[in-house]
Nucleic acid binder design. Structure first.
Lengths: 208, 208
DNA sequence: AACTTAACTGAACAGTGTTCATTAACTGTT
DNA sequence: AACAGTTAATGAACACTGTTCAGTTAAGTT
């Protein structure tokens, strides 16, 4: 039996999360089980339930760390000279982060699908922070637009980057080499921004 | 014991798939289990394994039907007068199909993530068919582009529509009402097409 | 040393996918 | 009509899963 207070609550939690991430990275999300995580840190199954509400809770905490890592990666792009370059940098960082941590990234999105309880509000907040970055750059390019239109544009553009990332990771729908996805986000951003003329935004009707 | 040949192989398969789809629609992907499907059609678990290789196989066959349904929905948009209207119609149909059959749609994409065996080649083929439709419209708009650039553009644009769809289904990252996602795909297509000038495509370098 | 408290365990429960020896029902032959 | 052959169908069994909780054990307190 593990000695009481061999490790503090925080240490134990950290150990468990790290072990779970290793398991995830090496064997994928399907291999993530309470018993395996418990074994990896040298505790019994029951002990995990003193630290985490359940497996879902553990997954959410992994997702929190994943998301934080993503934000860090994005932050390194903040020095790019122009809004356009910054947006491309974000997209590129997003893409490579997702590829580097493919299993963690998959967990982040597959897990939100499990319809038990809501996504915790910190997740919402972190994502809002990401969108704020995008919106800032878009607003700089289009100061004449209303905040609502900027928001809509940010979500449109970023959903698109997300879609490219997701399909890139999942399969061989993609021909071409390593750079295909990168090329796609670049051209997407270029064309979207070039096609964004003030006239067509505010109404929303089909005018073409 | 169910009488031998009460139902033919094909009938049984059809019954099982229909039962599984009902289960999926009503209770979501997590509730899909071999025992439940077997019970729903009045057979034992083992009988399912005479019809399907395993649960994965059953899921793939559901996915095949889902994809076929999607293609049907897209086909109803083929009469739109212009390529641009056709592309918007496809996107709109894609979006509403995914929303109507949200659980089936989720299965289609979550399942490709399970990294057992490859996605069957018919799936690849059906998806290729979808992309061919998009490419045809894009080629009509940009006859001067090479096939490679058309392909790249089709995948870029469609990954984007896919991304918007996915995020729309998953959560409340989306403000606004029912029409927000529709508005997003419309403006995406408009801006992407408007920003697509022949000069910036063939090289692929960063020129902006 | 005795008592209290809380950390920790692991057996147990209900569920999962999958297999396979056994059984039941049909088919064809004598 | 009786027997053998074939095969559809079963359901118990195995190894796993998440989750709970009565018990056990160690640490802190009096």
């Amino acid at each position: 039996m593990a000695r009481r207070s061999d490790h503090s609550r925080e240490e134990l939690q950290e150990m468990a999360l790290t072990a779970a991430e290793t398991l995830l990275d090496e064997q994928g999300g399907a291999a993530l089980s309470t018993r395996k995580v418990a074994a990896a840190i040298g505790y019994s199954v029951g002990a995990l339930y003193l630290i985490f509400k359940n497996l879902d809770d553990l997954c959410w905490q992994i997702n929190a760390r994943t998301l934080r890592g993503l934000m860090n990666a994005l932050d390194q792009q903040v020095d790019a000279p122009t809004p356009r370059a910054r947006l491309k940098g974000y997209a590129s960082a997003y893409l490579s982060y997702a590829q580097q941590w493919s299993h963690r990234w998959a967990l982040l999105f597959d897990h939100s699908a499990s319809e038990g309880d809501e996504a915790p509000e910190w997740l919402q907040a972190t994502i809002a922070e990401l969108f704020t970055r995008i919106e800032a750059d878009l607003a700089e390019l289009h100061p004449e637009e209303t905040p609502e239109d900027i928001t809509l544009a940010a979500r449109t553009l970023w959903s698109s980057v997300h879609g490219i990332t997701q399909l890139k990771l999942r399969d061989k729908l993609f021909f071409g080499g390593e750079s295909a996805a990168q090329q796609m986000t670049d051209s997407l951003i270029d064309r979207y921004l070039d096609g964004w003329t003030p006239s067509d935004a505010s109404v929303g009707g089909v005018t073409k």
